[in-house]
Design a protein around this nucleic acid. Structure first.
Lengths: 334, 334
DNA sequence: CTGAAAGCGCTAACAC
DNA sequence: GTGTTAGCGCTTTCAG
């Protein structure tokens, strides 16, 4: 049923090779022949069979992007950037959701199947450093995010500690002294949260403030609702704060919601800073200050590193730091 | 370099077929042999080659999902639902961004390459009815969204007119009389906007209100910033309104932002209703009322229709209406 | 129950 | 410049 190269060749009265040359825009095909072949292609509606091509070339032209959840805005935005940039390299993306599941993350390391993609850009969250170290080496892989990064593997991230310190400092500069940290994990501290918390602590320490662990507002996950509840609970317990530094914008959204419900004005009574600078951040009420990782740059660098691996680089793991900016908006001003 | 079936066969001292049987969990393989083969697989680290398998079976086990933008929250949420449900069918998804580009949408209809996916679930926005009608028939395709739906093609959507009417009615029931419609297109009216506008008009007409075209707040695109600007402009022009029915939640976000900047209270001065019921909607300030399309059901139905096509159904196009709910929250209450 | 062999559609040497 | 042909790794009849 499907039209093959051979069918086109017969129709045009040429050899398979000539058709292939036309399909691949090979130069040195007599214009007359080219035209004849092209019309045979059009008439027959020929479509190259990707699987056959992949089988023989061993290349798929596809890069896997593995993230915890495609509908988590930060990852949606990262995926959009990666996908778009991959297209400029004539590559396509294949997005994988790991849903915070360790087995699913193991599966992306394992590459249980061969010939599906040429490499993978991976934001792990559930894997341990050992998991990563154990991986079957060789397959082109670049890690993004704040997870563990064993020696041999390329990694792109922003400087979370510095960014958290800067955010906290801007709160301190605004005269805030009781700064809560929203997003401490109720169970094990995640890599991401840990680094942001470290920056927060460093800033407080540098300012000569003592650390009040009651200001760690804990959550089980990073849904806005969890942020909202955590802030309510803190207030119920009589914990006093004049600012909240949030682990990410989604928790910050929940915090804003809670503060509004509690009748606390933002930023007058409580200043709020988030992280990720989601597209929606500047339109929240009030517009949300946020750490803005340079997502385009994260995408650009991880693609570059991966392509080098695919093209044969076998050296040691590279560790790249992408830029970020602190976007100061109304939620933390004044 | 890569380990092939043959390598495993040699190592285990059996034929290729036997290895294949083990890989596919074929019954009737002597346990002893199975064990021997399995350990050869493990020792060698055998990974089946997907391209080869696809070439011979003609199946990819992959469904394309084509949407305008993967970082537009509504589509992220749809993609998440589709991807997750496809996994329960042992299918994987391949997400395509068309970026509102007609050529890119044409390309998904065209399927310029063969053997990449077994079918596609497609939310077009830029295609004309003729484009759709002209498509090379035969390839399994299901449309979602409010775009044109020519006779032969399966389509899943919600009843936009009824939903818009219901939303508008709830505003009317709250005593609102000057209800603006935010999201009218400055140039050509999109299918989606058109249907929602129709429902809005019908509700006003049924209530005996006359239509004031000055209440159509126009935009060039659906970014929050466009919604914010449109509301500012309306106020500057002295247009008076006590409610805004928004084409979608992102525009509604911009509207809330504008109203906050203008010092108009929501819902006291102006009630607001959005559309899509994004995850963030219930956490906005104030929580946003919204039409909630049943995304899981949209995913479920479109997958079902597509699988039927893939499994040989060649009948006429089906048109399915998925349910929706009006989520009434603070932004439109009182 | 296991083995041998044909061929999926394409690419790329290698001739001509 | 164009044609011939040998595989890429796997599935799948069909024998045994």
């Amino acid at each position: 049923m499907p039209v093959r190269l051979r069918d086109v060749a017969e129709r045009a009265g040429v050899s398979i090779k000539t058709v292939s040359n036309v399909v691949h825009d090979h130069p040195y095909v007599r214009p007359e022949l080219r035209a004849r072949v092209q019309s045979a292609i059009d008439e027959l509606g020929y479509r190259p069979n990707v699987s056959a091509r992949r089988l023989v070339t061993g290349q798929t032209g596809t890069i896997a992007i593995a993230v915890p959840g495609i509908d988590v805005p930060y990852f949606s935005e990262i995926c959009r950037a990666l996908d778009q940039q991959l297209h400029t390299h004539d590559l396509r993306s294949a997005i994988d959701q790991t849903l915070n599941d360790r087995d699913a993350e193991q599966a992306v390391l394992d590459q249980r199947e061969h010939g599906l993609v040429d490499g993978v850009i991976f934001h792990p969250v559930a894997l341990t450093p050992e998991d990563l170290a154990d991986r079957t080496a060789g397959f082109p892989l670049v890690l993004i995010g704040e997870g563990p990064s064993p020696a041999g593997i390329d990694h792109v991230m922003i400087d979370n500690i510095a960014a958290a310190e800067e955010a906290t400092n801007s709160l301190l500069a605004g005269g805030r002294r009781r700064i809560a940290f929203l997003g401490h994990n109720r169970r094990v501290l995640s890599h991401t949260t840990g680094q942001r918390l470290t920056g927060y602590k460093q800033a407080l320490k540098a300012a000569g403030l003592h650390l009040d662990r009651r200001l760690y507002l804990r959550v089980d996950d990073y849904r806005p609702e969890s942020g909202r509840l955590a802030v309510h609970q803190a207030v119920e317990r009589g914990i006093d704060f004049d600012a909240i530094f949030c682990r990410d914008d989604l928790l910050a959204l929940g915090a804003l919601h809670a503060l509004s419900q509690l009748g606390r004005r933002v930023p007058e009574d409580v200043a709020v800073i988030g992280w990720d600078d989601l597209t929606i951040a500047e339109h929240l009420t009030p517009p949300l200050s946020s750490i803005a990782p340079d997502k385009e740059e994260i995408a650009r660098r991880s693609i570059r590193l991966l392509l080098e691996r695919i093209n044969g680089y076998h050296g040691p793991g590279r560790h790249e730091i992408a830029p970020y900016r602190l976007m100061v908006r109304e939620s933390s001003t004044g």
